[in-house]
Design a protein around this nucleic acid. Structure first.
Lengths: 354, 354
DNA sequence: TGGCGTCGTGTTGACGTAAACATGGTGACC
DNA sequence: GGTCACCATGTTTACGTCAACACGACGCCA
């Protein structure tokens, strides 16, 4: 077995740095570039004989159309940008997957940026970077931090957002956070718990705020005492810390966690403290991540319809892209689509101990 | 609050369908396009007065450089394509995240395609679609199915692969599957288990094959009997099914699962069957997904260094992109980089019951 | 004072594609 | 038998950017 021999471009046919162009194919086939272009686009006003010559030349040279040139010509890349927050670390990767799939169905590709911090300036920088790449529109998934400054976006760039504080400034599609948190809390109250504790997401996160508010409202509406909430940072580790504190308090019989990762942490802490779930303490999560049904016990949680959210986000965005109209700013309230959630009752919830 | 008023392009300054170009800025600033270009690129051979005029004009028009034109000029998009398999559903999303981040550090953006099936033709189609988009290189993550036909790829496109059957055909970077499976199995044997059962991934998956082989080898080397393996499909549900069968067999005291999702399913099945973990049965996973440490009991597993893999994949790819040399084909064996894995011993493993 | 670098800026052309228009040959119809 | 329509194909041009070169003005030194 001989050593690996790199293939240099120059050795491949008569082409330098880039691949063969229409002109190369045309020269080889003995026709004009325009004819090659017609074949390449699949138009039918080319004689079969000519077409075959061209196709043969294309095959011989390994021709592939140059997207940059096409995009320059057409003014569009059929590509949308997605800004996501910690792709692998949250339930949001489901949304990303759904957006990618929905875009594919529409003939669009997705360019992805994963921001490690959801602050405005980081997101703005990412958006700028993306707009310097080739995108026709932008999807922002969960840009958090409730600081009041606006997002600096390239002008004329269609944008939709999900679960972000930019809801109200741009068209948005999101799960019904409030309804989810409310029904989770109500479910626990209905089981007979005197009150429900809450492990919340970070204070600067909009979804975390919405979930916490709805939890509080549900308790108040039921006339239940409102315990102090415990703040986490969405990670299982922070849920574990919160769980250890809650486990130490024998009064605690029901915990609603703002996401499933933190719920997993709470479960572990309760197990370690010897408190039975759901015998002594009931736990509810949010998101229905993949493993939620395989935690121990299987976790009761609020399921978001990520596919639907992704599909609608893309539909909303492409509607702007195609019409050339940009919906934005102050009056975008009725542009906020809310996708229903559903409570999945599994085995981590039960009536409180007698 | 008035109704939302869409902003049409035509109403914005003197621009039609697309955004303003160098020429528009140049006209407004009273200079040549070349001068605007120089300012746009941040070159310093422009008088401050002129530069300010240009910057003002840019701001007024909301100028953003046209990437298509730049890419056409330079022959590069500074974008790499990534083909991944079921983004949100496997540990591989960590690799994707790492690739995205590594690419960002190098000034590249990532265009993502998520294939729902890892078969050759689907991956080929995705690659073609991507190459029609604008990419300088391609990363294929876990393209499975061991059918012997080769991947039809656009010529002259640099490619690297991870955990796929195309290892050997293209430069590759992957975790040391064999070593991981071997040490997981050995760990259980060292604890005193007579043998170790295996819940494998699908038979057409290369990583699944590698893990199963190493498991078998370790048993044989230790003189332990080799039980029949149970085949899953990477999902927690399939792990649960496998776990129910294993739980019914009192001989089973140690299970090595080919990934953490299936291990979670096995854990649940064991809990339901009333078999204590790790008291009666020890369980080991593979991947160290985010929740692995918060399953009950916290899962002993093989941690892959996804960040390192992502970084090296990108480095390998860009090396080809930049040199213009494409490494491929038969002799790529020594182009296979193996990243070490580490066994994370948590609390799901213990000596067998007395 | 003349030649020569240097600096700031303008002009030309090329990247690859495809729309718009031009051309030339064929057949049909009156 | 002449006009006209139509078809396949070729030619020109523009998309936006930037490298390469051109050019004029200024200053320096001989």
């Amino acid at each position: 077995m001989r050593a690996a021999v790199p293939v240099r471009h120059e050795e491949v046919d008569a082409v330098e740095g880039r691949g063969p162009s229409l002109a190369d194919v045309a020269a080889l086939a003995g026709v004009s570039t325009q004819t090659v272009s017609r074949v390449s686009m699949g138009l039918d006003n080319v004689r079969p004989v000519t077409r075959d010559k061209v196709l043969a030349a294309m095959a011989q040279l390994g021709y592939a159309p140059n997207t940059a040139a096409r995009a320059l010509r057409y003014g569009s890349f059929r590509t949308i940008g997605v800004i996501a927050h910690r792709l692998a670390r949250t339930g949001e990767s489901r949304t990303v997957e759904a957006v990618v799939e929905a875009a594919r169905r529409e003939g669009y590709t997705v360019t992805l940026i994963d921001v490690e911090s959801p602050s405005s300036d980081v997101v703005s920088a990412a958006a700028t970077r993306l707009s310097h790449q080739a995108i026709d529109g932008l999807v922002i998934i969960r840009a958090e931090t409730a600081t009041p400054d606006t997002l600096a976006l390239p002008p004329r760039l269609p944008v939709v957002v999900s679960d972000s504080r930019f809801v109200g400034h741009h068209p948005a599609v999101g799960a019904d956070q409030g309804d989810g948190a409310r029904s989770a809390t109500q479910h626990l109250l209905d089981l007979g718990h005197r009150t429900v504790h809450h492990v919340a997401g970070p204070a600067d996160s909009i979804p975390a705020q919405l979930r916490a508010e709805a939890w509080r409202d549900a308790l108040v509406a039921a006339g239940s005492p409102v315990p102090e909430l415990v703040e986490g940072d969405w990670t299982a580790a922070s849920g574990y810390d919160a769980g250890r504190r809650l486990a130490a308090d024998p009064e605690v019989t029901a915990v609603f966690c703002a996401n499933d990762e933190m719920a997993a942490g709470v479960l572990r802490a309760l197990h370690e403290a010897g408190r039975a779930v759901p015998g002594d303490v009931s736990v509810v999560g949010f998101d229905d991540v993949l493993l939620a049904g395989y935690l121990w016990p299987p976790l009761t949680t609020v399921a978001q319809d990520f596919d639907e959210i992704g599909t609608r986000l893309v539909a909303r965005l492409l509607q702007q892209v195609r019409s050339g109209e940009i919906e934005d700013d102050a009056d975008a309230e009725d542009l906020h689509e809310v996708v229903p959630v559903s409570l999945l009752v599994r085995q981590s919830t039960a009536p409180p101990p007698a």
